[in-house]
Design a protein around this nucleic acid. Structure first.
Lengths: 185, 185
DNA sequence: GTCTATAATTCGATAGAC
DNA sequence: GTCTATCGAATTATAGAC
């Protein structure tokens, strides 16, 4: 037991600070200096542990949507269940949600955009394939993704007044029918 | 008639180059130097004509959605008409569409985000108010905006494979029912 | 394991010659 | 009206002392 800070706590502090900065400002405007200052250490430490800004970004963002088994959900409850899953996920601190953090950077950073595409290919599409006919799965997954990301974008990133004014329950109630139309269309 | 380049043609060339850069890279990564190089002039000319990078951004982006009078469209055709309007608008060169250009920057730039909110408050919300009951207009406008921006984001900016794979007609057919569920819900 | 010092770039913006 | 030259600030990244 040393009183000195261990390598691991510093690394964790850096990752935590990085996530917050990337969440608030996106990749380009986030500086290693600011991350280091937030973590209470020297900028060179960030380089030592993560090698570069790009590698720090990769390490800071592990997206796990934790989607339930959609095949087990009755078809008529699927839209609302899906909508509720994401709204609950996002209503906490948006800076804690890796998907929102990734989205903020993905619009201007190709590396982040590629990660975004991976998330949907590896997590959203397979989950939906279990719930809809496989011949429509690709198109449906895309359209569902568009609607989910539209909410994430307008409510949590752009903060459009009309969308922010709604309660979480109103969001679910307002968009579940739209999702249902896409899923059953 | 002077053979020398007039002030106006230079200014136009700068604006054109700026729009392309802002469209491709967003506000932060776009540099005045790059814009000047694209326009074939000196970087200091950009400053001379526009004062600062921020003012250049403002001048480069005038968003006019050119929404038709939605009150004149039969309610049952409204969702598809609205969807078609935006898809047609975006299917050309996305760099030519001011809304998409603005969106790319709005996610990480507060100034651009504010412009985005203005566009929806001044153009989308009023147009929808003419088509739906006024007591629901605010919420509906927000949810419609979320869906439209979701498409813009996933198809034209992030290029999610499942969304890109669709034909324009399939996009309209796939999302119009969703929009309809929101409008009539 | 942590920090100081600094290299090497790059950027927005300005001053002034022609 | 256009460009040269440059300032001052900020950035990522590295080298090396302790």
């Amino acid at each position: 037991m040393t009183a000195r800070r261990t390598s691991d706590t510093t690394k964790t502090a850096i990752l935590r600070a990085a996530r917050e900065r990337f969440a608030a400002q996106g990749y380009e405007r986030t500086t290693i200096r600011a991350v280091a200052a937030d973590a209470g250490i020297d900028p060179s430490m960030v380089m030592r542990y993560f090698g570069s800004k790009e590698q720090l970004f990769d390490a800071a963002l592990t997206v796990d949507l934790r989607l339930p088994d959609l095949g087990a959900v009755p078809a008529e409850e699927l839209p609302a269940a899906l909508m509720r899953h994401f709204v609950e996920r996002w209503e906490g601190d948006p800076a804690d949600d890796a998907l929102l953090v990734l989205l903020r950077s993905a619009v201007t950073n190709e590396r982040a955009a590629a990660r975004m595409r991976e998330v949907f290919a590896a997590q959203v599409a397979p989950a939906l394939a279990a719930a809809v006919g496989s011949e429509r799965a690709g198109a449906v997954a895309g359209l569902v993704a568009a609607q989910l990301l539209g909410l994430a974008l307008s409510r949590y990133l752009l903060k459009l007044p009309g969308v922010v004014a709604l309660t979480p329950a109103e969001v679910v109630a307002g968009l579940a029918p739209a999702l249902g139309a896409t899923l059953s269309g």
